[in-house]
Structures are given as structure tokens and as C-alpha cells.
Design a protein around this nucleic acid. Structure first.
Length: 276
DNA sequence: CGCCAGGACACCG
DNA sequence: CGGTGTCATGGC
């Protein structure tokens, strides 16, 4: 990798980002380098000191990908002890970023995510990339991109071997809806949260939870806070059964990620699918 | 080996 | 609306 170095002053922790459950393709090498793939681009990044990172490339794309123009430390400070559990969660999750991921890959990833464990999701997505994606060769390795809708539809027999189970028709329907032009994920970027949500819900196999994940992890809609089984348990046991997120406005999605990370950490679910 | 998973859908009352 | 059965695989 090139010896380019950058400084990141705000909260930033590669391991926590990788284990926050929003992106299923992050890979770590034994030398401490992490690999991110998004929109056909590859980034190798390794911490080289306090707030200093060695990167294979750096440009506005990755700046936006890691949401670096927002101060997460300020958001953490803003929750001044309204809820003890939330404060602990934000402390434990300090360093997590909400990634601005590719909408198409994110949509398919979270369609697949339903009733799967995170290791199973990763493995399924990896198969899709290996079977249907395009190989990309860097100075370090050859990896495959996440395939386009057309590429997914082109080889049905390959898609059959990706452990999709009953979600297979959901994935195919989404690919067809994009490929035939009846909806454009790029154009949804200009919609407000409510319209974006409504459009995403129009996909077969996409409900409230998956749609809000796409809003948050692909479109940067930080006011959206997905309620999954983990968050529902947190709401029940630490917020008196009442969803606290509407009260946090544009910070809701970020606080949700802290809570999700912390809840899984308490149950010992982190570090299970670490790749070495 | 049995259990259950970052849910959605069809169908019911 | 809100509650239920069902769905196919793979990690653990």
C-alpha cells in the first residue's frame, strides 16, 4: 500500500466499525490492515498512531463513506445522562461511524439479513460476490465487487448456491425492479425520509426494519433508527417499553448503533466472525 | 444433534 | 390495526 497518511480527529475505531453489524464485507489482515469495498472502490487502511492512519488512497468518497464531516464525539456528549444504559452504550461504542454505503448492496444485504446471524449474512454475501461479482486486482490481492442487478439476474444457477433460502425470490425481485427501470436507487437520494422509506417499502421482502437500515446505512438518514430484535429487547428492558428514538432527532440512528453494538457486546456476540 | 437467527408475508380476528 | 404460523439455511 502507498505510504499516504491521514489524520482523523473525531471518534474512529476500525474494529468497532467492522463489528457494528452495518457492513458485512469488511476484512482484516493479520498485520492490522482493514479492507473496505464500496461502489467498486477498495480502501486499505491501518492505524499508524494516535489519530493517524495509513491509507492506500484518500479522497472525498472515503471522507463521505466514513461520515467524517460529522462530530460523533459531540453527539456522545449531548446525551448527558438521560438514560444510564444509553450512556454506557455510547461509551462502549465510541469509534463507530455510520457508513454511507452503496444503496444497492445495502438493500440486498439487509434483505438477506432477516433471520440470519451476522456470520451467516457475511458468508452469504461473500458467495454472491465470488459467484456473480467482478474480480478486482490490487497490489495486495484479488477480490470481487458486489454484483450489479444485471449480473445477479444473468446467472440464476449461481445465485442458487448463495444460501439465500426463502429470501431468494426477494433478492431476484429487487434485482428485476432495478434492472427494468421501475425504480432508481440513485434518484431516491433527493427524497425526504418519509418518501424514501415509502419507496423502499415497495420492494417485495422489504419491511420497516430492512427499509430503515437502508435509509440509515446507505442514504445517511441519521434520524432513522431501525428496531430489530436486539433493539426491541433493549427498549423493553431499559426504556420501559417505549421507543426513545423519536426524541433524539437526527442523532437517533447513531445512538441506535451504539445500543445495538453494546447489546451484542454484553451477550458476547462480538469477535465471532473475525477474519484473520 | 437441536436450536435459533439485525423479519416479512399471508391470513386471521 | 395487532397477533399468529410459516418460511430455508447455516453457525454454534
Amino acid at each position: 500500500m502507498d505510504n499516504m497518511k491521514i489524520t482523523i480527529d473525531d471518534d474512529f475505531n476500525l474494529e468497532k466499525i467492522a463489528e457494528s453489524g452495518q457492513c458485512f464485507r469488511i476484512f482484516s489482515f493479520p498485520d492490522g490492515t482493514w479492507r473496505f469495498i464500496s461502489c467498486g472502490k477498495i480502501l486499505y487502511i491501518r492505524q499508524a498512531g494516535d489519530h493517524i492512519y495509513e491509507v492506500s488512497e484518500w479522497n472525498p468518497f472515503w471522507q463521505r463513506y466514513f461520515d467524517l464531516d460529522r462530530s460523533y464525539s459531540r453527539i456522545r456528549e449531548s446525551i448527558n445522562g438521560d438514560n444510564e444504559y444509553l450512556v454506557h452504550a455510547a461509551c462502549a461504542g465510541a469509534g463507530i461511524r455510520i457508513l454511507r454505503q452503496d444503496p444497492w448492496e445495502t438493500l440486498i444485504s439487509f434483505i438477506i439479513s432477516q433471520r440470519k446471524t451476522i456470520p451467516a449474512i457475511s458468508s452469504s454475501i461473500e458467495k454472491i460476490c465470488r459467484f456473480c461479482g467482478t474480480p478486482l486486482t490490487t497490489s495486495r490481492e484479488t477480490v470481487c465487487t458486489f454484483p450489479s442487478p444485471e449480473a445477479i439476474l444473468a446467472t440464476p444457477e449461481k445465485l442458487n448456491r448463495c444460501s439465500l433460502g426463502y429470501r431468494l425470490p426477494y433478492v431476484r425481485a429487487a434485482a428485476e425492479k432495478i434492472a427494468d427501470g421501475s425504480i432508481s436507487l440513485e434518484k431516491l437520494d433527493t427524497c425526504n425520509d418519509e418518501t424514501l422509506m415509502k419507496e423502499l417499502l415497495s420492494f417485495y421482502g422489504v419491511g420497516r426494519k430492512v427499509a430503515s437500515c437502508v435509509c440509515l446505512f446507505a442514504y445517511g438518514r441519521s434520524a432513522m433508527a431501525p428496531v430489530d430484535t436486539w433493539i426491541q429487547k433493549v427498549i423493553n428492558s431499559h426504556f420501559g417499553g417505549q421507543n426513545p428514538f423519536p426524541g433524539y432527532g437526527a442523532n437517533a440512528g447513531i445512538l441506535q448503533q451504539y445500543l445495538f453494538y453494546y447489546a451484542r457486546m454484553e451477550k458476547g456476540r462480538l469477535n465471532r466472525n473475525r477474519k484473520k
